[in-house]
């Protein structure tokens, strides 16, 4: 007996792929008489199934570092395999596989006590993306403020908003600080972060709402005045905004301060 002659190679490959990704034993089986040689085909299929699912789990693990550490290897593999079966990659490029994983883990059975898990996963993904991003050939955003001050922002740089303190939570997880994990994973609120890549890797810094609005506006192309206006939308006093910018933006590792460029004077004819 053989693979049926009327089964094209394409159809055979589709049947094999379906069997490899199936969750239930019934779906994993292929007709034993399709296979010859000294070993049962099911043994080889098991090897391939394990390789595929392990590779996809590993790819996700590389991107979702804090989630993996938090839930542990076995539980992460369970989530990863579940995701891989529901959303296998479409292209042979696993570096950017798994963008939907954060949404997938929201409400995953067994994560009821981790209401912040999805947001933590989203932060992991943002960090993974930043670590792979190319250096911006033109450099980051640059604005000029009143008083001749020029702010040059790092690239790549982005903001991230969450309802849990996932920046602090992620740091605590990576440092295995159980007390801080419990504290940071506490009551929901509104949290803002700046994420940027430097020579030492991707950095995460907490921001107030006004600083986050300011930074988001800058990254969207606003000039200094417009960015300050955006910060004012945080419904804080001018002093509070100035204080936030002075303590959070100016000393942050993602901005360097210089003098505004003086426009060149053209000589009269």
């Amino acid at each position: 007996m053989t693979v049926p002659s009327e089964l094209s190679l394409g159809a055979l490959q589709a049947r094999i792929a379906t069997a490899l990704m199936a969750a239930e034993p019934a779906g994993q089986r292929l007709p034993p008489d399709w296979f010859g040689g000294a070993r049962e085909g099911s043994i080889g299929l098991r090897v391939h199934r394990n390789t595929v699912l392990s590779a996809l789990s590993h790819a996700l693990r590389l991107s979702y570092v804090a989630v993996d550490r938090l839930v542990g290897e076995d539980f992460f593999d369970r989530m990863a395999v579940g995701y891989a079966r529901s959303a296998p990659p479409a292209a042979p490029q696993l570096d950017d596989y798994g963008e939907g994983f954060a949404e997938f883990v929201a409400g995953f059975p067994g994560t009821e006590k981790l209401p912040y898990l999805s947001e933590l996963a989203r932060l992991d993904w943002q960090i993974a993306e930043l670590s792979r991003a190319s250096d911006d050939a033109d450099g980051g955003a640059c604005i000029e403020m009143a008083g001749g001050v020029r702010l040059q922002f790092a690239a790549p740089l982005r903001t991230y908003r969450s309802t849990y303190a996932v920046g602090a939570l992620r740091a605590a997880i990576l440092e295995e600080d159980l007390k801080e994990i419990e504290r940071a994973g506490g009551a929901p609120g509104e949290y803002h972060h700046a994420l940027w890549r430097s020579a030492s890797g991707v950095n995460v810094r907490s921001l107030s709402e006004s600083s986050a609005r300011f930074l988001a506006a800058v990254l969207a192309g606003a000039d200094g005045a417009a960015a300050l206006s955006a910060a004012a939308g945080a419904q804080q006093s001018a002093e509070q905004i100035a204080s936030a910018l002075a303590s959070e933006i100016l000393p942050a590792g993602f901005v360097s301060i210089g003098k505004a460029r003086v426009p060149e004077r053209s000589e009269p004819n």
Partner: peptide
């Protein structure tokens, strides 16, 4: 080997039957 079918990439080197059809392909 093969790894892509029906819009899915399975990260493994999956086996081919060594048939005339496979050789042509």
């Amino acid at each position: 080997s093969w790894s892509v079918t029906g819009g899915r990439y399975l990260p493994d080197l999956l086996p081919l039957p060594y048939t005339e059809e496979a050789l042509r392909l």
